[in-house]
């Protein structure tokens, strides 16, 4: 399934995340979740917990704290 789609990876800057969950709601592939860890501000940062990211950038576009970077994985 979804073989024709791009592959991607999400990098969350955990120190910056405020655990609002907007990225989790925005992800069309549901590969993000709020983790159990606690960051230095006392929030539980978001994380990518499984494969399947399609590099659509919706999480990064909706992140109010610009805590997300998105990478596209090209198979060369």
């Amino acid at each position: 399934m979804y073989l024709w789609m791009a592959k991607g990876r999400v990098k969350v800057f955990e120190g910056r995340c405020k655990s609002c969950g907007l990225c989790v709601a925005a992800c069309p592939m549901k590969v993000l979740r709020i983790s159990e860890r606690i960051n230095d501000k006392g929030y539980r940062p978001a994380e990518q917990f499984k494969e399947g990211c399609i590099a659509c950038k919706m999480c990064a576009v909706t992140c109010p704290d610009v805590a997300i970077e998105v990478f596209r994985i090209d198979e060369v």
Binding site: G8, C20, E69, F71
Partner: peptide, 29 residues
Amino acid sequence: MKEVRIFERPRSMADVTTHYCPGCTHGIA
């Protein structure tokens, strides 16, 4: 395999954490 960064922090946005509440959309604006 090559990773290309397709989304990053804009250059004219300072590298600091905002004081806004979690989920406040001021940050997006």
